[in-house]
Design a binder for these strands. Structure first.
Lengths: 343, 343
DNA sequence: TTTGACTCCGAAAGCGTTTTCGTTGAAAAT
DNA sequence: ATTTTCAACGAAAACGCTTTCGGAGTCAAA
């Protein structure tokens, strides 16, 4: 029966509703014995509190919103499922909900934020696809909406965020190429509106510097974050007199495009030119040769994002104390090899 | 200010709270003039009702749950974003929410259902990845949880569902091959636990029958819904004495695997053997040659799923009156060509 | 004039929790 | 013996809305 309410439990135990409520919420003015008693009968009766009553009374929506990332009119994040799964599992444990929101443009998103700040239907927000200079940080802060960002921005020092350590990831990738014997290492980066683009360039540069390799500006190509972007960028690289022997790509998608360009020029990815992507897309393993890449534990990221936001909402921590960097790991498949001696 | 409540509006207009409430909910015992007045001041003050109070009082959670599909320990649906975007936009219009749920196993999912039926936190559920014989239909019906399924099952006649017309999709695909001149058309199908596997086989068979082509049992290969599955299945087909000139694949992923197999045998997809996938994955365009496939309007599907469930919850329609079939469309890219005469 | 029907609105009781505050009784301190 | 302290609980207000019911007023019909 779902007719179990606080009242029914209180009557069954000859206690007051308030005592039962405080027992369930682990108040310290309730004796251990009654807490035990209450918890036992609650599971026995299969009691589930009415979350709407609870949320109304407590003033805490106990509900996090996730703004699903929309880019260029398309929703093509293959990790969405894993990410949200991580969030949801973390929240389910504490009885909170995850609701999804969609904003099809920046204006749309800001409008959404304003509505949310008025309605107070959500405890906090998780945003993603952060830009180099992302105005959402200030907007959300001004609106006093608790949030944590998946990704950093130029002005995120006082906010809460979780991000991959892009710089060290591409530092490691480049170092990896160096250790394989490469000296001519190019980088196809993303548009500089994205924060990670800049950071990934930095990692590439630092590794070259530390390895005593001079940075050639023509070895840095900007690309749209798409298959075609990668193809065009690689086309440019292949026009060079002095070709690179390795290319680090800002994403798997871009790397796939770059591979296509190589094939068009009768070059075999991983032979004349090694290359690596980033993201760890499964489909990278489906092509020939399979694309080497870097992976990150997406589900854990989702879980962490949710947990951080809960801490923030509960006031346990300040935004600036909730900043987390996760590592990406090299996944060798087939396109990272030593340079050809004869080439 | 977010201190706007029904009360504040009532005071401002010298009306009672109940009148304002009924005006907003379009009750017919409120005059047009006051309705207009109330609505105007509501937008002026930027009033947002407290959904928890509303949901508590009305008893309608106004919230739909989406069980995100988990398969083989992985969450790899690339359309999740679009699907949920469609749902969310439909629900936002009427002020309902979409919350995501995750179940990592069948037992887990059933447990989830039971909890939901007790707690009544959700108005209804959208499930996906339906099986040929999907026990969830009966379970949810017995638990009296309103739901609509994305995909059919063997026992879904009294339930609400939305599905692609798999049979006609693969009928059309096969007919397309026939019209290109193919007579030896194989089909790589999925495991028969999935309902769509059976239906897609049916479509393939019907088209062959209607075209006067005999169905050869060795031209039907079962594959796991994965890259490797497709590869293995195509390996089998290529062992045949009499090779097919066209292969219709149950999914793009499987088709990618099949292409890999062809390459391993020094065959060019779309030349010696034409093939088509299904799903319309973007990445199909990234390989060489680009994979021909079939697409469906995912966002519309999401929108429809949500709207159907809302109708169901509101009691406007019976489950059996909410069944919808959508069409898939052929997307020619590069792997569907006429058979080689010399081959 | 009375009756009935009809329109529009207010009063008030819920919805199921949380949380503050006060009370009780027993143990400890004076 | 009296006061203080403290643990453990109950009473009741509050959260902000929905919804039922009844009443006031108007107008037309009898």
């Amino acid at each position: 029966m779902s007719n179990s309410s606080l009242k029914s439990i209180a009557e069954k135990l000859s206690l007051s509703e308030s005592t039962v409520s405080r027992a369930l919420n682990n108040y310290k003015d309730i004796s251990q014995s009654t807490k035990k008693l209450v918890n036992e009968t609650v599971v026995k009766l299969g009691y589930q509190p009415n979350i709407f009553a609870r949320r109304l009374a407590s003033g805490n929506p106990e509900c996090l919103g996730f703004v699903i990332p929309w880019r260029d009119g398309q929703l093509n994040d293959p990790f969405l499922g894993e990410l949200m799964s991580g969030m949801s599992t973390a929240l389910t444990k504490i009885g909170w909900d995850l609701t999804v929101l969609v904003a099809k443009s920046f204006e749309n998103e800001v409008e959404l934020f304003k509505k949310l700040s008025m309605s107070k239907n959500l405890s906090g927000l998780i945003i993603s696809r952060t830009l180099r200079n992302d105005k959402r940080f200030k907007i959300l802060t001004d609106l006093k909406i608790p949030f944590v960002a998946h990704g950093r921005s130029i002005n995120c020092s006082t906010s809460s965020w979780l991000d991959v350590d892009n710089e060290s990831a591409f530092f490691n990738m480049t170092k990896h190429f160096v250790s394989l014997g490469h000296k001519k290492i190019a980088h196809i980066c993303g548009p500089n509106v994205y924060n990670f683009s800049i950071q990934r360039i930095e990692g590439w540069k630092k590794a070259l510097l530390e390895s005593g390799i001079q940075i050639k500006s023509e070895f840095l190509q900007v690309a749209d974050l798409s298959f075609d972007g990668g193809k065009i960028a690689m086309d440019q690289l292949l026009k060079l007199k002095d070709l690179p022997t390795a290319v680090s790509c800002v994403s798997d998608t871009v790397a796939m495009g770059a591979m296509q360009s190589m094939r068009n020029h009768n070059l075999s990815p991983g032979k004349e030119i090694s290359l690596m992507g980033y993201d760890g897309l499964e489909l990278g393993a489906w092509i020939d040769p399979p694309l080497s890449t870097m992976t990150q534990p997406i589900q854990t990221v989702g879980k962490n994002l949710a947990e951080m936001l809960v801490d923030l909402v509960n006031g346990k921590k300040k935004p600036s104390d909730l900043q987390k960097l996760v590592r990406a790991n090299i996944l060798r498949r087939g396109t990272d090899n030593s340079p050809m001696t004869t080439y």
